[in-house]
Simulated scan of single mutants.
Amino acid sequence: MTFSRRSFSALAACISISIGVLVAAPRAQAQDFPFGQEMTLDVRPLPGSKRVPSLEIGDRGETRIELWCKGGRGQFSVAGETIVFVPGAMEERACPPDKAQLDDALIATLSEATNWKRQGDYISFIGARTLRFHLNSN
């Protein structure tokens, strides 16, 4: 079977389009990640508190974290369904030991997440344990 120049060009165009679709698919999914938005952990406040942990994720993954007591910064990196969270320094506030321990456990769980999933206004960070956040809408 011989290919004419026109057939070869058509085949090359089809291959280029297919590669473009495959390469763009992870990017499209990463764009569904809520960059530039705030979200709140899907839990009730602790007894005697109105505070619930929240994340404010910037357009490039830079993150402001407010926990039950501590706060700080971190960085999310997203590639398709894969996620990496690297925490930065946390502000040492006057935290009771039980709240400080909960904050440390939440940061550790978030750091261990390897995947993410979006279902409507809910974002789940999936690892050994799953954390579910609700997107804040104003």
Rank of each mutant, 00 (worst) to 15 (best):
M1Y: 15
T2E: 15
S4N: 12
R5V: 11
R5H: 13
R6M: 08
R6H: 08
R6Y: 05
S7C: 08
F8D: 00
A10H: 06
L11W: 00
A12G: 07
C14A: 09
C14K: 07
I15N: 01
S16Q: 03
S16K: 01
S16H: 02
I17R: 01
I19D: 08
G20A: 14
V21W: 10
L22P: 04
L22Q: 10
A24L: 11
A25S: 07
A25F: 08
A25T: 11
P26W: 03
A28V: 07
A30I: 02
A30C: 03
Q31L: 03
Q31G: 07
F33A: 01
F35H: 01
G36A: 05
E38H: 10
E38Y: 08
M39C: 13
D42K: 08
V43Q: 14
P45N: 11
L46E: 15
P47F: 09
S49I: 14
S49H: 15
R51T: 15
R51V: 14
V52G: 10
P53A: 08
P53E: 07
S54V: 05
I57M: 00
I57T: 00
R60F: 00
G61H: 00
T63M: 01
T63P: 01
R64A: 11
I65E: 06
E66S: 10
L67G: 11
K70R: 12
K70M: 14
G71R: 09
G72T: 11
R73D: 06
G74L: 05
G74E: 02
F76K: 00
F76A: 00
A79T: 04
A79Q: 03
G80H: 04
G80R: 03
G80S: 04
T82L: 07
V84G: 01
V84W: 00
V86H: 03
P87S: 03
A89F: 05
M90G: 05
E91G: 12
R93A: 13
A94F: 13
P96C: 11
P96Q: 12
P97F: 15
D98G: 14
D98Q: 15
K99H: 13
K99A: 14
K99L: 14
A100Y: 14
Q101D: 15
Q101M: 15
Q101K: 15
L102T: 11
D103G: 09
A105N: 13
A105Q: 13
I107W: 07
A108K: 14
A108S: 12
T109H: 02
T109D: 08
L110R: 04
S111N: 07
T114D: 09
T114H: 01
K117T: 09
R118T: 07
Q119I: 09
D121W: 04
I123M: 14
F125V: 03
F125A: 05
I126G: 04
I126C: 04
G127R: 06
G127L: 07
A128H: 07
R129N: 11
T130I: 08
R132A: 10
H134L: 06
L135Y: 05
N138H: 09
N138D: 10
